[in-house]
Design a protein around this nucleic acid. Structure first.
Lengths: 252, 252
DNA sequence: CGGCAAGTTGAACCGCCTCAATGACGGTGG
DNA sequence: CCACCGTCATTGAGGCGGTTCAACTTGCCG
Protein backbone atom coordinates (compact mmCIF):
# COMPACT_ATOMS: atom_id res chain seq x y z
CA UNK A 1 0.00 0.00 0.00
CA UNK A 2 1.19 3.46 -0.81
CA UNK A 3 1.58 6.50 1.48
CA UNK A 4 -0.86 9.17 2.49
CA UNK A 5 -1.59 10.49 -0.99
CA UNK A 6 0.52 7.93 -2.75
CA UNK A 7 -2.14 6.42 -4.94
CA UNK A 8 -3.25 9.77 -6.29
CA UNK A 9 0.20 10.98 -7.26
CA UNK A 10 1.12 7.58 -8.57
CA UNK A 11 -1.87 7.48 -10.87
CA UNK A 12 -1.70 11.09 -12.07
CA UNK A 13 1.99 10.97 -12.78
CA UNK A 14 1.38 7.96 -14.96
CA UNK A 15 -1.16 10.00 -16.89
CA UNK A 16 1.03 13.05 -17.44
CA UNK A 17 4.43 14.32 -16.41
CA UNK A 18 4.10 16.28 -13.18
CA UNK A 19 6.67 18.81 -12.07
CA UNK A 20 7.43 19.46 -8.43
CA UNK A 21 5.25 22.57 -8.55
CA UNK A 22 2.41 20.55 -10.04
CA UNK A 23 2.49 18.03 -7.22
CA UNK A 24 2.84 20.83 -4.69
CA UNK A 25 -0.36 22.41 -5.89
CA UNK A 26 -2.03 19.01 -5.95
CA UNK A 27 -0.98 18.46 -2.36
CA UNK A 28 -2.44 21.82 -1.43
CA UNK A 29 -5.77 20.81 -2.92
CA UNK A 30 -5.59 17.65 -0.86
CA UNK A 31 -4.34 19.28 2.30
CA UNK A 32 -7.35 18.41 4.42
CA UNK A 33 -8.10 14.70 4.56
CA UNK A 34 -11.22 13.13 5.96
CA UNK A 35 -12.19 9.58 6.73
CA UNK A 36 -15.76 8.56 6.02
CA UNK A 37 -17.61 5.40 6.94
CA UNK A 38 -18.64 2.57 4.71
CA UNK A 39 -21.89 3.13 2.80
CA UNK A 40 -21.84 6.87 3.26
CA UNK A 41 -23.29 9.25 0.69
CA UNK A 42 -20.84 11.96 -0.28
CA UNK A 43 -22.95 13.68 -2.90
CA UNK A 44 -26.38 12.97 -4.30
CA UNK A 45 -28.24 14.18 -7.32
CA UNK A 46 -30.72 16.07 -5.17
CA UNK A 47 -28.23 17.95 -3.04
CA UNK A 48 -25.64 19.46 -5.31
CA UNK A 49 -22.26 19.43 -3.68
CA UNK A 50 -19.90 21.55 -5.71
CA UNK A 51 -16.83 19.60 -4.71
CA UNK A 52 -14.17 17.49 -6.28
CA UNK A 53 -13.11 14.42 -4.31
CA UNK A 54 -9.61 12.98 -4.36
CA UNK A 55 -9.59 9.39 -3.17
CA UNK A 56 -6.64 8.14 -1.19
CA UNK A 57 -7.87 4.87 0.24
CA UNK A 58 -10.95 2.69 0.05
CA UNK A 59 -13.54 1.95 -2.60
CA UNK A 60 -16.56 3.94 -3.71
CA UNK A 61 -19.01 4.13 -6.56
CA UNK A 62 -20.71 6.65 -8.77
CA UNK A 63 -24.29 5.58 -9.33
CA UNK A 64 -27.78 6.59 -10.30
CA UNK A 65 -30.84 5.88 -8.18
CA UNK A 66 -34.22 4.99 -9.63
CA UNK A 67 -37.65 5.91 -8.30
CA UNK A 68 -38.29 2.34 -7.19
CA UNK A 69 -35.10 2.24 -5.15
CA UNK A 70 -32.99 0.18 -7.51
CA UNK A 71 -29.69 1.59 -8.58
CA UNK A 72 -27.16 1.42 -11.37
CA UNK A 73 -23.51 1.80 -10.54
CA UNK A 74 -21.83 3.84 -13.28
CA UNK A 75 -18.33 2.93 -12.19
CA UNK A 76 -16.46 1.94 -9.10
CA UNK A 77 -13.91 4.44 -7.91
CA UNK A 78 -10.61 3.34 -6.46
CA UNK A 79 -7.68 4.87 -4.61
CA UNK A 80 -6.07 7.51 -6.83
CA UNK A 81 -9.33 8.27 -8.62
CA UNK A 82 -10.95 11.68 -8.70
CA UNK A 83 -14.69 12.21 -8.50
CA UNK A 84 -16.49 15.29 -9.68
CA UNK A 85 -14.34 16.40 -12.60
CA UNK A 86 -17.24 15.58 -14.89
CA UNK A 87 -19.44 18.11 -13.14
CA UNK A 88 -17.03 20.98 -12.71
CA UNK A 89 -19.18 23.57 -14.43
CA UNK A 90 -22.72 22.27 -14.54
CA UNK A 91 -25.03 23.31 -11.76
CA UNK A 92 -27.26 20.27 -11.55
CA UNK A 93 -25.77 16.98 -10.42
CA UNK A 94 -27.25 13.99 -12.20
CA UNK A 95 -25.56 11.21 -10.29
CA UNK A 96 -24.65 10.24 -6.78
CA UNK A 97 -21.40 9.27 -5.18
CA UNK A 98 -20.98 7.07 -2.16
CA UNK A 99 -18.52 4.78 -0.43
CA UNK A 100 -18.47 1.01 -0.51
CA UNK A 101 -15.86 0.76 2.22
CA UNK A 102 -14.43 3.13 4.75
CA UNK A 103 -12.63 5.73 2.73
CA UNK A 104 -9.91 8.33 3.19
CA UNK A 105 -10.29 11.29 0.86
CA UNK A 106 -9.74 14.97 0.31
CA UNK A 107 -12.37 17.39 -0.85
CA UNK A 108 -11.78 20.61 -2.76
CA UNK A 109 -14.21 23.24 -4.05
CA UNK A 110 -14.86 22.98 -7.76
CA UNK A 111 -13.59 26.44 -8.55
CA UNK A 112 -10.39 25.81 -6.59
CA UNK A 113 -9.72 22.90 -8.91
CA UNK A 114 -10.59 24.98 -11.95
CA UNK A 115 -8.24 27.68 -10.75
CA UNK A 116 -5.49 25.14 -10.13
CA UNK A 117 -5.83 23.89 -13.68
CA UNK A 118 -5.31 27.41 -14.96
CA UNK A 119 -2.24 27.95 -12.85
CA UNK A 120 -0.41 24.71 -13.52
CA UNK A 121 -0.81 23.41 -17.00
CA UNK A 122 0.98 20.16 -16.21
CA UNK A 123 -1.59 19.46 -13.53
CA UNK A 124 -4.37 20.44 -15.92
CA UNK A 125 -3.10 17.89 -18.40
CA UNK A 126 -3.08 15.14 -15.82
CA UNK A 127 -6.59 15.98 -14.63
CA UNK A 128 -7.88 16.18 -18.18
CA UNK A 129 -6.26 12.86 -18.94
CA UNK A 130 -7.84 11.41 -15.83
CA UNK A 131 -11.23 12.57 -17.03
CA UNK A 132 -10.60 10.97 -20.41
CA UNK A 133 -9.86 7.71 -18.69
CA UNK A 134 -13.14 7.93 -16.76
CA UNK A 135 -14.88 8.52 -20.05
CA UNK A 136 -13.25 5.42 -21.55
CA UNK A 137 -14.21 3.29 -18.55
CA UNK A 138 -17.80 4.50 -18.77
CA UNK A 139 -17.92 3.74 -22.49
CA UNK A 140 -16.54 0.26 -22.01
CA UNK A 141 -19.00 -0.38 -19.22
CA UNK A 142 -21.83 0.82 -21.43
CA UNK A 143 -20.77 -1.58 -24.17
CA UNK A 144 -20.68 -4.38 -21.62
CA UNK A 145 -24.23 -3.75 -20.49
CA UNK A 146 -25.47 -3.47 -24.03
CA UNK A 147 -23.81 -6.35 -25.78
CA UNK A 148 -22.12 -8.76 -23.41
CA UNK A 149 -23.70 -11.61 -21.48
CA UNK A 150 -23.59 -11.91 -17.73
CA UNK A 151 -20.52 -14.14 -17.64
CA UNK A 152 -18.52 -12.05 -20.08
CA UNK A 153 -19.58 -8.87 -18.35
CA UNK A 154 -18.55 -10.08 -14.93
CA UNK A 155 -15.21 -11.37 -16.15
CA UNK A 156 -14.62 -8.05 -17.89
CA UNK A 157 -15.30 -6.06 -14.76
CA UNK A 158 -12.94 -8.18 -12.68
CA UNK A 159 -10.17 -7.66 -15.21
CA UNK A 160 -10.85 -3.94 -15.37
CA UNK A 161 -10.62 -3.64 -11.59
CA UNK A 162 -7.42 -5.67 -11.52
CA UNK A 163 -5.78 -3.46 -14.11
CA UNK A 164 -6.88 -0.23 -12.49
CA UNK A 165 -5.65 -1.38 -9.09
CA UNK A 166 -2.29 -2.39 -10.49
CA UNK A 167 -1.85 1.14 -11.85
CA UNK A 168 -1.46 2.34 -8.27
CA UNK A 169 0.59 -0.60 -7.13
CA UNK A 170 -2.19 -2.58 -5.51
CA UNK A 171 -2.92 -6.19 -6.25
CA UNK A 172 -1.14 -8.54 -8.62
CA UNK A 173 -2.01 -10.06 -11.99
CA UNK A 174 -3.71 -12.98 -10.24
CA UNK A 175 -4.91 -11.52 -7.01
CA UNK A 176 -6.46 -8.41 -5.52
CA UNK A 177 -8.65 -7.28 -2.67
CA UNK A 178 -12.22 -6.60 -3.65
CA UNK A 179 -14.51 -5.46 -0.85
CA UNK A 180 -17.62 -5.46 -3.02
CA UNK A 181 -20.65 -7.48 -2.01
CA UNK A 182 -22.51 -9.44 -4.66
CA UNK A 183 -25.31 -6.87 -4.42
CA UNK A 184 -22.89 -4.12 -5.28
CA UNK A 185 -21.42 -6.10 -8.15
CA UNK A 186 -24.95 -6.73 -9.39
CA UNK A 187 -25.74 -3.01 -9.35
CA UNK A 188 -22.75 -2.37 -11.56
CA UNK A 189 -23.35 -5.31 -13.87
CA UNK A 190 -27.04 -4.63 -14.40
CA UNK A 191 -27.86 -8.02 -12.92
CA UNK A 192 -29.47 -9.50 -9.85
CA UNK A 193 -27.30 -10.39 -6.87
CA UNK A 194 -28.70 -13.88 -7.19
CA UNK A 195 -27.51 -14.23 -10.72
CA UNK A 196 -24.14 -12.73 -9.92
CA UNK A 197 -23.80 -15.48 -7.39
CA UNK A 198 -24.42 -18.11 -10.04
CA UNK A 199 -22.01 -16.45 -12.44
CA UNK A 200 -19.30 -16.40 -9.81
CA UNK A 201 -19.92 -20.05 -9.07
CA UNK A 202 -19.52 -20.77 -12.76
CA UNK A 203 -16.25 -18.84 -12.89
CA UNK A 204 -15.03 -20.79 -9.89
CA UNK A 205 -16.05 -24.16 -11.30
CA UNK A 206 -14.25 -23.39 -14.55
CA UNK A 207 -11.14 -22.41 -12.63
CA UNK A 208 -11.25 -18.95 -14.16
CA UNK A 209 -11.60 -16.86 -11.02
CA UNK A 210 -12.95 -17.02 -7.51
CA UNK A 211 -14.00 -14.53 -4.87
CA UNK A 212 -13.65 -15.35 -1.22
CA UNK A 213 -13.08 -13.30 1.87
CA UNK A 214 -13.25 -10.07 -0.06
CA UNK A 215 -10.45 -11.19 -2.30
CA UNK A 216 -10.49 -12.01 -6.00
CA UNK A 217 -8.18 -14.74 -7.20
CA UNK A 218 -7.80 -15.15 -10.91
CA UNK A 219 -7.02 -18.76 -11.63
CA UNK A 220 -6.31 -18.46 -15.32
CA UNK A 221 -5.75 -14.85 -16.43
CA UNK A 222 -5.41 -15.65 -20.12
CA UNK A 223 -8.51 -17.80 -20.23
CA UNK A 224 -10.46 -15.19 -18.30
CA UNK A 225 -9.35 -12.46 -20.67
CA UNK A 226 -10.37 -14.65 -23.58
CA UNK A 227 -13.82 -15.24 -22.10
CA UNK A 228 -14.26 -11.53 -21.42
CA UNK A 229 -12.78 -10.48 -24.74
CA UNK A 230 -10.84 -8.09 -22.56
CA UNK A 231 -8.57 -5.56 -24.20
CA UNK A 232 -6.94 -3.41 -21.59
CA UNK A 233 -5.98 -0.66 -24.01
CA UNK A 234 -9.01 1.37 -23.02
CA UNK A 235 -7.27 1.86 -19.67
CA UNK A 236 -3.87 2.73 -21.10
CA UNK A 237 -1.98 5.21 -19.01
CA UNK A 238 -1.24 7.00 -22.23
CA UNK A 239 1.67 9.16 -21.17
CA UNK A 240 4.31 6.88 -22.56
CA UNK A 241 2.71 6.82 -25.98
CA UNK A 242 1.82 10.49 -26.13
CA UNK A 243 3.41 11.96 -29.26
CA UNK A 244 6.15 14.48 -28.51
CA UNK A 245 4.42 16.93 -30.78
CA UNK A 246 1.40 17.08 -28.52
CA UNK A 247 3.31 16.92 -25.29
CA UNK A 248 5.51 19.81 -26.29
CA UNK A 249 2.56 21.90 -27.29
CA UNK A 250 0.51 21.21 -24.20
CA UNK A 251 3.00 20.90 -21.42
CA UNK A 252 4.14 24.53 -21.55
CA UNK B 1 -32.70 24.81 -40.02
CA UNK B 2 -29.82 26.99 -38.97
CA UNK B 3 -27.01 28.41 -41.08
CA UNK B 4 -23.66 27.00 -42.06
CA UNK B 5 -22.29 26.55 -38.55
CA UNK B 6 -25.46 27.64 -36.83
CA UNK B 7 -26.09 24.51 -34.81
CA UNK B 8 -22.61 24.49 -33.36
CA UNK B 9 -22.61 28.10 -32.22
CA UNK B 10 -26.17 27.82 -31.04
CA UNK B 11 -25.36 24.88 -28.83
CA UNK B 12 -22.04 26.12 -27.49
CA UNK B 13 -23.36 29.56 -26.67
CA UNK B 14 -26.08 27.90 -24.64
CA UNK B 15 -23.40 26.09 -22.70
CA UNK B 16 -21.24 29.12 -21.94
CA UNK B 17 -21.11 32.79 -22.80
CA UNK B 18 -19.04 33.25 -25.94
CA UNK B 19 -17.41 36.53 -26.85
CA UNK B 20 -16.93 37.63 -30.45
CA UNK B 21 -13.29 36.54 -30.24
CA UNK B 22 -14.34 33.15 -28.93
CA UNK B 23 -16.66 32.56 -31.86
CA UNK B 24 -14.03 33.89 -34.25
CA UNK B 25 -11.55 31.31 -33.09
CA UNK B 26 -14.23 28.64 -33.24
CA UNK B 27 -14.98 29.62 -36.81
CA UNK B 28 -11.29 29.34 -37.64
CA UNK B 29 -11.22 25.81 -36.29
CA UNK B 30 -14.23 25.06 -38.48
CA UNK B 31 -12.98 26.90 -41.55
CA UNK B 32 -12.79 23.87 -43.79
CA UNK B 33 -16.03 21.99 -44.12
CA UNK B 34 -16.49 18.58 -45.68
CA UNK B 35 -19.48 16.55 -46.65
CA UNK B 36 -19.32 12.82 -46.10
CA UNK B 37 -21.65 10.08 -47.19
CA UNK B 38 -24.07 8.08 -45.15
CA UNK B 39 -22.56 5.12 -43.29
CA UNK B 40 -19.03 6.39 -43.60
CA UNK B 41 -16.38 5.67 -40.98
CA UNK B 42 -14.65 8.83 -39.81
CA UNK B 43 -12.43 7.28 -37.20
CA UNK B 44 -12.05 3.74 -35.96
CA UNK B 45 -10.38 2.23 -32.94
CA UNK B 46 -7.73 0.61 -35.10
CA UNK B 47 -6.70 3.65 -37.07
CA UNK B 48 -6.13 6.49 -34.65
CA UNK B 49 -7.22 9.75 -36.16
CA UNK B 50 -6.05 12.57 -33.93
CA UNK B 51 -8.85 14.88 -34.93
CA UNK B 52 -11.76 16.67 -33.37
CA UNK B 53 -14.94 16.76 -35.43
CA UNK B 54 -17.44 19.60 -35.33
CA UNK B 55 -20.81 18.52 -36.69
CA UNK B 56 -22.90 20.98 -38.62
CA UNK B 57 -25.54 18.83 -40.22
CA UNK B 58 -26.61 15.20 -40.24
CA UNK B 59 -26.57 12.40 -37.71
CA UNK B 60 -23.73 10.14 -36.61
CA UNK B 61 -22.82 7.76 -33.83
CA UNK B 62 -19.97 6.87 -31.55
CA UNK B 63 -19.83 3.11 -31.17
CA UNK B 64 -17.78 0.09 -30.25
CA UNK B 65 -17.41 -2.93 -32.48
CA UNK B 66 -17.19 -6.47 -31.17
CA UNK B 67 -15.15 -9.35 -32.57
CA UNK B 68 -18.29 -11.07 -33.86
CA UNK B 69 -19.33 -7.99 -35.79
CA UNK B 70 -22.06 -6.77 -33.47
CA UNK B 71 -21.83 -3.25 -32.23
CA UNK B 72 -22.89 -1.03 -29.38
CA UNK B 73 -23.70 2.58 -30.08
CA UNK B 74 -22.40 4.71 -27.21
CA UNK B 75 -24.36 7.77 -28.23
CA UNK B 76 -25.82 9.34 -31.30
CA UNK B 77 -24.23 12.63 -32.31
CA UNK B 78 -26.32 15.46 -33.70
CA UNK B 79 -25.75 18.80 -35.39
CA UNK B 80 -23.84 21.06 -33.02
CA UNK B 81 -22.12 18.16 -31.28
CA UNK B 82 -18.38 17.72 -31.09
CA UNK B 83 -16.66 14.37 -31.40
CA UNK B 84 -13.19 13.60 -30.12
CA UNK B 85 -12.94 15.86 -27.10
CA UNK B 86 -12.84 12.76 -24.93
CA UNK B 87 -9.68 11.59 -26.66
CA UNK B 88 -7.74 14.81 -26.90
CA UNK B 89 -4.65 13.53 -25.11
CA UNK B 90 -4.76 9.77 -25.17
CA UNK B 91 -2.93 8.06 -27.99
CA UNK B 92 -5.06 4.97 -28.40
CA UNK B 93 -8.61 5.35 -29.62
CA UNK B 94 -11.02 2.93 -28.01
CA UNK B 95 -14.13 3.69 -29.98
CA UNK B 96 -15.24 4.39 -33.51
CA UNK B 97 -17.16 7.22 -35.05
CA UNK B 98 -19.28 7.05 -38.17
CA UNK B 99 -22.19 8.71 -39.90
CA UNK B 100 -25.79 7.53 -40.00
CA UNK B 101 -26.77 10.03 -42.66
CA UNK B 102 -24.91 12.25 -45.05
CA UNK B 103 -23.08 14.72 -42.84
CA UNK B 104 -21.51 18.14 -43.09
CA UNK B 105 -18.67 18.63 -40.63
CA UNK B 106 -15.38 20.31 -39.90
CA UNK B 107 -12.26 18.56 -38.73
CA UNK B 108 -9.47 20.07 -36.66
CA UNK B 109 -6.24 18.57 -35.34
CA UNK B 110 -6.38 17.72 -31.68
CA UNK B 111 -3.54 19.98 -30.69
CA UNK B 112 -5.10 22.91 -32.55
CA UNK B 113 -8.15 22.49 -30.34
CA UNK B 114 -6.00 22.20 -27.25
CA UNK B 115 -4.15 25.34 -28.24
CA UNK B 116 -7.42 27.16 -28.89
CA UNK B 117 -8.59 26.27 -25.41
CA UNK B 118 -5.47 27.83 -23.95
CA UNK B 119 -5.90 31.01 -25.94
CA UNK B 120 -9.60 31.68 -25.37
CA UNK B 121 -10.82 30.73 -21.98
CA UNK B 122 -14.44 31.40 -22.86
CA UNK B 123 -14.19 28.86 -25.64
CA UNK B 124 -12.43 26.46 -23.31
CA UNK B 125 -15.36 26.75 -20.91
CA UNK B 126 -17.87 25.97 -23.62
CA UNK B 127 -15.90 22.98 -24.85
CA UNK B 128 -15.40 21.68 -21.34
CA UNK B 129 -19.09 22.08 -20.67
CA UNK B 130 -19.85 20.26 -23.91
CA UNK B 131 -17.70 17.38 -22.75
CA UNK B 132 -19.52 17.33 -19.44
CA UNK B 133 -22.79 17.04 -21.27
CA UNK B 134 -21.47 14.10 -23.29
CA UNK B 135 -20.45 12.50 -20.04
CA UNK B 136 -23.95 12.97 -18.62
CA UNK B 137 -25.56 11.49 -21.73
CA UNK B 138 -23.26 8.50 -21.56
CA UNK B 139 -24.05 7.98 -17.90
CA UNK B 140 -27.79 8.17 -18.47
CA UNK B 141 -27.49 5.76 -21.36
CA UNK B 142 -25.51 3.38 -19.19
CA UNK B 143 -28.20 3.49 -16.53
CA UNK B 144 -30.80 2.77 -19.19
CA UNK B 145 -29.02 -0.33 -20.39
CA UNK B 146 -28.44 -1.56 -16.89
CA UNK B 147 -31.75 -1.01 -15.22
CA UNK B 148 -34.53 -0.08 -17.63
CA UNK B 149 -36.65 -2.42 -19.71
CA UNK B 150 -36.85 -2.26 -23.47
CA UNK B 151 -39.95 -0.07 -23.55
CA UNK B 152 -38.71 2.40 -20.98
CA UNK B 153 -35.29 2.48 -22.60
CA UNK B 154 -36.68 3.22 -26.04
CA UNK B 155 -39.02 5.91 -24.77
CA UNK B 156 -36.14 7.47 -22.87
CA UNK B 157 -33.94 7.60 -25.95
CA UNK B 158 -36.64 9.24 -28.04
CA UNK B 159 -37.13 11.93 -25.41
CA UNK B 160 -33.39 12.47 -25.11
CA UNK B 161 -33.07 12.95 -28.87
CA UNK B 162 -36.02 15.32 -28.92
CA UNK B 163 -34.55 17.49 -26.19
CA UNK B 164 -31.08 17.56 -27.72
CA UNK B 165 -32.46 18.49 -31.13
CA UNK B 166 -34.54 21.28 -29.67
CA UNK B 167 -31.41 22.77 -28.15
CA UNK B 168 -30.28 23.68 -31.64
CA UNK B 169 -33.68 24.73 -32.85
CA UNK B 170 -34.61 21.52 -34.65
CA UNK B 171 -37.83 19.64 -34.08
CA UNK B 172 -40.68 20.45 -31.76
CA UNK B 173 -41.94 18.99 -28.48
CA UNK B 174 -44.09 16.52 -30.39
CA UNK B 175 -42.23 15.98 -33.61
CA UNK B 176 -38.76 15.59 -35.02
CA UNK B 177 -36.91 14.02 -37.87
CA UNK B 178 -35.13 10.81 -36.99
CA UNK B 179 -33.20 9.14 -39.82
CA UNK B 180 -32.27 6.09 -37.72
CA UNK B 181 -33.17 2.62 -38.88
CA UNK B 182 -34.47 0.12 -36.39
CA UNK B 183 -31.14 -1.68 -36.61
CA UNK B 184 -29.35 1.47 -35.55
CA UNK B 185 -31.78 2.10 -32.74
CA UNK B 186 -31.26 -1.49 -31.64
CA UNK B 187 -27.50 -1.05 -31.55
CA UNK B 188 -27.93 1.89 -29.23
CA UNK B 189 -30.58 0.27 -27.04
CA UNK B 190 -28.75 -3.01 -26.60
CA UNK B 191 -31.64 -4.84 -28.24
CA UNK B 192 -32.44 -6.69 -31.43
CA UNK B 193 -33.90 -4.80 -34.35
CA UNK B 194 -36.77 -7.27 -34.23
CA UNK B 195 -37.55 -6.43 -30.66
CA UNK B 196 -37.20 -2.70 -31.31
CA UNK B 197 -39.87 -3.17 -33.92
CA UNK B 198 -42.22 -4.72 -31.40
CA UNK B 199 -41.50 -2.01 -28.87
CA UNK B 200 -42.26 0.68 -31.43
CA UNK B 201 -45.50 -1.07 -32.32
CA UNK B 202 -46.41 -1.07 -28.65
CA UNK B 203 -45.66 2.64 -28.35
CA UNK B 204 -47.80 3.29 -31.40
CA UNK B 205 -50.70 1.17 -30.16
CA UNK B 206 -50.66 2.99 -26.84
CA UNK B 207 -50.68 6.32 -28.62
CA UNK B 208 -47.42 7.28 -26.96
CA UNK B 209 -45.23 7.76 -30.01
CA UNK B 210 -44.84 6.58 -33.57
CA UNK B 211 -42.08 6.51 -36.13
CA UNK B 212 -42.85 6.72 -39.81
CA UNK B 213 -41.02 8.05 -42.82
CA UNK B 214 -37.94 8.86 -40.73
CA UNK B 215 -39.99 11.06 -38.47
CA UNK B 216 -40.86 10.58 -34.81
CA UNK B 217 -44.23 11.84 -33.64
CA UNK B 218 -44.85 11.91 -29.93
CA UNK B 219 -48.53 11.44 -29.33
CA UNK B 220 -48.59 12.06 -25.62
CA UNK B 221 -45.40 13.72 -24.35
CA UNK B 222 -46.37 13.62 -20.69
CA UNK B 223 -47.41 9.99 -20.75
CA UNK B 224 -44.25 9.07 -22.64
CA UNK B 225 -42.10 10.91 -20.14
CA UNK B 226 -43.92 9.10 -17.35
CA UNK B 227 -43.31 5.73 -18.95
CA UNK B 228 -39.65 6.53 -19.49
CA UNK B 229 -39.23 8.13 -16.08
CA UNK B 230 -37.53 10.82 -18.11
CA UNK B 231 -35.95 13.74 -16.28
CA UNK B 232 -34.35 16.09 -18.76
CA UNK B 233 -32.15 17.78 -16.20
CA UNK B 234 -29.20 15.61 -17.19
CA UNK B 235 -29.19 17.56 -20.46
CA UNK B 236 -29.50 20.99 -18.88
CA UNK B 237 -27.71 23.68 -20.82
CA UNK B 238 -26.36 24.85 -17.52
CA UNK B 239 -25.22 28.33 -18.39
CA UNK B 240 -28.22 30.08 -16.92
CA UNK B 241 -27.87 28.37 -13.60
CA UNK B 242 -24.10 28.70 -13.32
CA UNK B 243 -23.31 30.61 -10.13
CA UNK B 244 -21.72 33.99 -10.73
CA UNK B 245 -18.95 33.01 -8.36
CA UNK B 246 -17.79 30.27 -10.69
CA UNK B 247 -18.39 32.15 -13.89
CA UNK B 248 -16.37 35.13 -12.72
CA UNK B 249 -13.52 32.92 -11.67
CA UNK B 250 -13.42 30.88 -14.82
CA UNK B 251 -14.38 33.24 -17.59
CA UNK B 252 -11.53 35.69 -17.09
C1' DC C 1 -26.02 -16.75 22.19
C1' DG C 2 -28.77 -13.83 19.40
C1' DG C 3 -29.36 -11.06 15.36
C1' DC C 4 -28.42 -9.10 11.04
C1' DA C 5 -25.86 -8.84 6.66
C1' DA C 6 -24.22 -11.50 3.00
C1' DG C 7 -23.90 -15.74 0.45
C1' DT C 8 -26.17 -19.89 -1.59
C1' DT C 9 -29.50 -22.75 -3.83
C1' DG C 10 -34.02 -24.34 -6.12
C1' DA C 11 -38.21 -23.71 -8.99
C1' DA C 12 -41.17 -21.17 -11.87
C1' DC C 13 -41.79 -17.32 -14.77
C1' DC C 14 -41.04 -13.82 -18.43
C1' DG C 15 -38.60 -10.59 -21.35
C1' DC C 16 -35.95 -10.63 -25.03
C1' DC C 17 -33.48 -13.41 -28.54
C1' DT C 18 -33.17 -16.63 -32.41
C1' DC C 19 -34.67 -18.46 -36.52
C1' DA C 20 -37.62 -18.08 -40.30
C1' DA C 21 -40.46 -15.88 -43.57
C1' DT C 22 -43.12 -12.26 -45.74
C1' DG C 23 -44.25 -7.48 -47.01
C1' DA C 24 -43.31 -2.59 -48.31
C1' DC C 25 -40.49 0.71 -50.52
C1' DG C 26 -37.14 3.01 -53.50
C1' DG C 27 -33.65 2.83 -56.84
C1' DT C 28 -31.69 0.89 -61.07
C1' DG C 29 -31.34 -1.00 -65.44
C1' DG C 30 -33.49 -3.31 -69.27
C1' DC D 1 -42.56 1.40 -67.70
C1' DC D 2 -41.84 -2.54 -65.42
C1' DA D 3 -38.85 -6.27 -63.60
C1' DC D 4 -35.50 -6.73 -60.45
C1' DC D 5 -32.93 -6.16 -56.26
C1' DG D 6 -31.36 -4.55 -51.81
C1' DT D 7 -32.64 -2.41 -47.66
C1' DC D 8 -35.72 -1.87 -44.12
C1' DA D 9 -40.00 -3.05 -41.69
C1' DT D 10 -43.04 -6.55 -39.84
C1' DT D 11 -44.82 -10.76 -37.82
C1' DG D 12 -44.88 -15.67 -35.77
C1' DA D 13 -43.05 -19.64 -33.00
C1' DG D 14 -39.90 -21.52 -29.95
C1' DG D 15 -35.93 -21.26 -26.82
C1' DC D 16 -32.68 -19.31 -23.45
C1' DG D 17 -30.82 -16.16 -20.09
C1' DG D 18 -31.79 -13.79 -16.32
C1' DT D 19 -35.51 -12.54 -12.94
C1' DT D 20 -38.58 -13.36 -9.15
C1' DC D 21 -39.95 -15.52 -5.08
C1' DA D 22 -38.81 -18.26 -1.38
C1' DA D 23 -36.12 -20.65 1.45
C1' DC D 24 -31.85 -21.88 4.07
C1' DT D 25 -26.89 -21.26 5.36
C1' DT D 26 -22.78 -18.97 6.77
C1' DG D 27 -20.17 -15.61 9.08
C1' DC D 28 -19.56 -11.73 11.92
C1' DC D 29 -20.24 -8.62 15.77
C1' DG D 30 -22.40 -7.24 19.99
Amino acid sequence: MLGKQGALKERLSRLAALSARDTDLLSRLCSRQRTVKRHADLSTDSQTDPSVFFLHEGWGARYKLFPDGRRQVLMFVLPGDIVGMNQLLVDTATESFGTMTEMRLSQAPRDAVAEAMRQRHGLALALWRSLEQEHAILAEHLASLGRRGALQRTAHLLLELRQRLMATGEGSPTDFECPLTQYELADALGLTAIHVNRVIRHLREQGLASIEHRRVTIGDPDALAAVAEFDGRFLSSGRAGLPDRVRRRLTR
